[in-house]
């Protein structure tokens, strides 16, 4: 069940009985048919423990459950929307960038330190991801919000990609992710290039980059 792109800031999703969707609260713009919107107390999938996990990790974004039979149009805040179709792999994304996703995807929370220890935590600080990030795994579609248009950069073994941490949106696949610093004496005296930190992504997968350095 993929999202249909209406324009760069608006997607349409088909809701069928028995398959729920999650979306950010307030992101529905219009709908047709018998569709209900229920606030999700636990902020997504899993039980109360998952909810506590998300609250502690500060990855609890207000979500609602979309169920029924009909068409729903989603858009939020004038942000550009990019849809990602997952076929079994994992998408790493900040929870507040999630506009809507299929209920068939398993939602989890990952500690940034689990990828690279202290440098992972440091990386979270620089990208604004914080200590934790959200993972979505399985078969299904995700609509991700970004400031400016989104483009995909493939990451292949031996060809790492460097991304400005502020322009980083999400990544998927078997991608290792490390913070490359180029801090020299110029940065120390405040005459830096402004590009002292870069994310280096290597492995096999895709990284999603937005055409802006402004966070959501």
């Amino acid at each position: 069940m993929a999202f249909t792109r209406v324009n760069s800031k608006l997607v349409e999703a088909r809701v069928v009985p028995g398959r729920r969707m999650f979306s950010q609260r307030g992101a529905m713009l219009a709908y047709r048919g018998a569709v209900t919107f229920t606030p999700s107390i636990t902020g997504g999938q899993g039980g109360v423990m998952s909810m506590i996990g998300r609250r502690v990790a500060n990855e609890a974004t207000p979500l609602m459950i979309v169920e029924g039979d009909g068409l729903v149009m989603f858009g939020h805040g004038g942000h550009h929307i990019h849809t990602v179709d997952l076929t079994g792999e994992t998408l790493y994304v900040e929870a507040d960038r999630l506009l809507a996703f299929d209920g068939s995807l398993a939602q989890g929370t990952m500690f940034m330190g689990s990828q690279g220890g202290v440098m992972g935590v440091m990386r979270g600080q620089v990208t604004g991801q914080g200590l934790f990030t959200t993972t979505l795994q399985g078969k299904g579609s995700v609509a991700v919000m970004a400031h400016g248009g989104v483009f995909e950069l493939p990451v292949t073994p031996g060809r790492p990609v460097h991304v400005d941490p502020q322009a980083y949106v999400a990544h998927r696949g078997e991608v290792r992710n490390k913070l490359a610093t180029a801090v020299g004496w110029r940065e120390m005296v405040g005459r830096g290039s402004g590009e002292a930190f870069q994310l280096e992504l290597s492995g096999q997968g895709t990284v999603y980059v937005q055409a802006s350095e402004e966070k959501l």
């Binding site: 324009n7 608006l10 047709r32």
Partner: peptide, 16 residues
């Protein structure tokens, strides 16, 4: 954001 035309029956968010 760009305008999208839809035909009734439809329910629309008041702000959209």
């Amino acid at each position: 954001g760009a305008v999208h035309f839809v035909e009734p029956p439809i329910r629309v968010d008041p702000q959209a």
